[in-house]
Design a protein around this nucleic acid. Sequence first.
DNA 1: AGCGCCTCTTGATCTGGGTCAAAGAATTCA
DNA 2: TGAATTCTTTGACCCAGATCAAGAGGCGCT
Lengths: 248, 248
Amino acid sequence: MSVELSVAAPRDCGECQIRHRAVCSRCDEDELTQLDQIKYYRSFQAGQTVLWSGDQMDFVGSVVTGIATLTQTMEDGRTQMVGLLLPSDFVGRPGRGEAPYDVVATTDLVMCCFRKKPFENMMLRTPHVAQRLLEMTLDELDAAREWMLVLGRKTAREKIASLLAIIARRDATLKLASLDAKVVFDLPLTREAMSDYLGLTLETVSRQISALKKDGVIVLEGKRHVTVPSMERLLEEAGDDSDGGMVS
Amino acid sequence: MSVELSVAAPRDCGECQIRHRAVCSRCDEDELTQLDQIKYYRSFQAGQTVLWSGDQMDFVGSVVTGIATLTQTMEDGRTQMVGLLLPSDFVGRPGRGEAPYDVVATTDLVMCCFRKKPFENMMLRTPHVAQRLLEMTLDELDAAREWMLVLGRKTAREKIASLLAIIARRDATLKLASLDAKVVFDLPLTREAMSDYLGLTLETVSRQISALKKDGVIVLEGKRHVTVPSMERLLEEAGDDSDGGMVS
DNA sequence: AGCGCCTCTTGATCTGGGTCAAAGAATTCA
DNA sequence: TGAATTCTTTGACCCAGATCAAGAGGCGCT
């Protein structure tokens, strides 16, 4: 429950309004002003827990910079990541009180938050915000279900390839890079976090990454810097049918 | 794409309006009349595919009687069930054109449908319908994420116990039975369907069910009729923390 | 520089669940 | 009534990935 609340908002709002896919894209001036009034920033350090499962959740918001994960844990410690929040992703459940899972910052993290009550009120008044929220939730649901296929039916190698593909695609989209060019990015997750995402052990993750490297599917510099020479090849390894758009 | 459309609506609407958690509960007379005008029934036989992945989906609706599954399939035939639709569950994505997965009737099935366009229009006019939809989608998302934990981290035995618990709880809720009493129900799924839900093979499903039976966690009469003497025990076997509410 | 602390890699071995195979219910059809 | 079909169970064996164990960088600290 160690939540550093930095009400100081050094960033210009324009930035986050453009970045978070959430509520801004179709708001008029008036509505943006309303949003501004209930908006604040929160910063977290890498490793910090934003929210524990069961906590009251009095805000909604979106990631500005950094990465957070949603995880569920069994009493005996087995944990499964159920969501990955990259910049521009939305967190929060309007109408819900309790967080259903832990939210953890895996890197230093800045979030743009809105207090929940006022946000909900605004939602009632501006239908297109509710629409947007529904759309986003449906996206998340699709992604979760895509991920169920990965967890339930894919081999370790396919799982790793799938995860790399998601990150690569997501990264490429943010950079507006062409999709057939080679993709370069830094892995935002530790091997352990990847294993939690994929329902594997970290040893298996490591081995499979080594294998993909040996087979030329990816090029690794250091432990985190990845180059994907051919997205097509990667997707093939992932067992994906040509495209398919799984995002967190 | 074999969709039997039975516009004949033998059922009184009251029934489905009460039953589907969807749009009706808070509608006034006027809105109900509007809904009536765009409502129709569809019947399917067991095994029939309601919708193929990629199909245009021109309706939304909810299950009146019977059971349907949402499944995703890889090119090589591996399939994963990603959702289970029991009576009163909602299907459809307002604002989306294509179905992202196959919808299959596993028993004879009756659905109460609304044509999508008019439904969406109505949604724009009546905010509480959109709210309700958002709530439902968030429920589904929670259920999907709960299921990711099952798929990623639970053993075969725990998976089976989890599935039985879901069905039992769901059934008990529908019947308004007390939660500590023993629960009796018929399995609505074949062993194969269960294996698709759980990311297992049907042989493993069979073996684990036998094991749970031998250990007295469940009592089986025939292949489908199940008695759960103690929900507590079953949940324990599922690795669940006391309660926890995963519903499709 | 030297030490402790992470994160990651790699090897050796074990095992839960997959695969292959066969045969027992239950149901439908003729 | 028996034959065909579908669903289910059970057995024997195997392998992908888990587990256990030992190092190998890398980085901040004193």
